[in-house]
Design a protein around this nucleic acid. Structure first.
Lengths: 151, 151
DNA sequence: TCCTTTCGTTTACAAATGTAATTTATACTT
DNA sequence: AAGTATAAATTACATTTGTAAACGAAAGGA
């Protein structure tokens, strides 16, 4: 089993990780200042999350003179992929398509992002089934889903 | 004005909602049986979630003779959209594209889902920027990313 | 009517989370 | 060296979540 996906990161911890990932490692002072400005967190609050993330193995910390520097131990893209997969595993497979459509409609994407996505989709189309069954019930819900099919 | 997005649904509660959504309303007996089979939950456990969901306003319950029937008070698609937005709001905007690519690679999509998505993407391409800035830091990270000085 | 089955409700309880003050160890200043 | 500023660690505490047993009310069978 991969150890990376074992690490659960809460919402607040995500916000903490984001600044460290973005700065590619940072001192507590920097992190505290940024989160105070961005989200209004008290220094103590940020320190708590920092401590928890170190304990969880998501961050490493090294003392550099008086400063403590935090480095990510997990990659942002990997963590993001785990988080999204984790969420989508709890959603009705049958409705993932429409959900993605809405999602894509709501996020910002660059030209190259879009190009990449379309590529991926064209690839996927080659072997995609005519229909995806929902997996909300133990046996599948073919009949039930069909009924809701008209929208 | 929409009350729907106020409701927070935990992972376990999601699993509970899924069966009710899929069955388009169900009796506690059914729900308990299904979740016992699918996830090995004890009857008490399912009852707890049912109770919490009713209190949260995600479900309504009506006594029908000896049976209690639970009906969803929020739409599955709406809830799914809220959940995904909620997650993506905590992710680096700059990396949303690659994350979506991986996600799409990992989920099952039907031919029509794919068609729909490609449509949406083509639409989006018309006004998409060349590049998406990350919003992990208060000011955006274009400059900050390289900024390791200052103390 | 009395008992037993069956629900929903109440209570339980540990772990995780959000949020932060207090304490302790330590490096810097005088 | 003593005092001060500072950073991490410890402690705090209410909520939420996962998981479930126990309790009380109601309905159906005897």
């Amino acid at each position: 089993m991969n150890t990376t996906d074992e690490i659960e990161i809460s919402q607040s911890e995500w916000e903490t990780m984001r600044v460290i990932w973005t700065l590619n490692g940072a001192s507590s002072k920097q992190i505290i200042a940024i989160l105070a400005e961005k989200l209004g967190w008290k220094a103590s609050t940020t320190k708590t999350y920092l401590g928890r993330l170190v304990k969880k193995g998501a961050l490493s910390t090294t003392k550099n003179g008086r400063e403590y520097v935090y480095q990510p131990l997990i990659e942002e893209q990997v963590a993001m992929n785990n988080a999204t997969s984790g969420l989508f595993d709890h959603l009705c497979q049958h409705k993932v398509g429409p959900t993605l459509t809405t999602l894509i409609n709501n996020v910002e994407l660059s030209q190259s992002d879009i190009e990449e996505l379309i590529n991926e989709l064209n690839q996927k189309a080659k072997t995609a089934p005519e229909m995806v069954k929902c997996n909300c019930l133990p046996d599948g819900c073919d009949e039930n889903c069909e009924m809701e099919e008209m929208k």
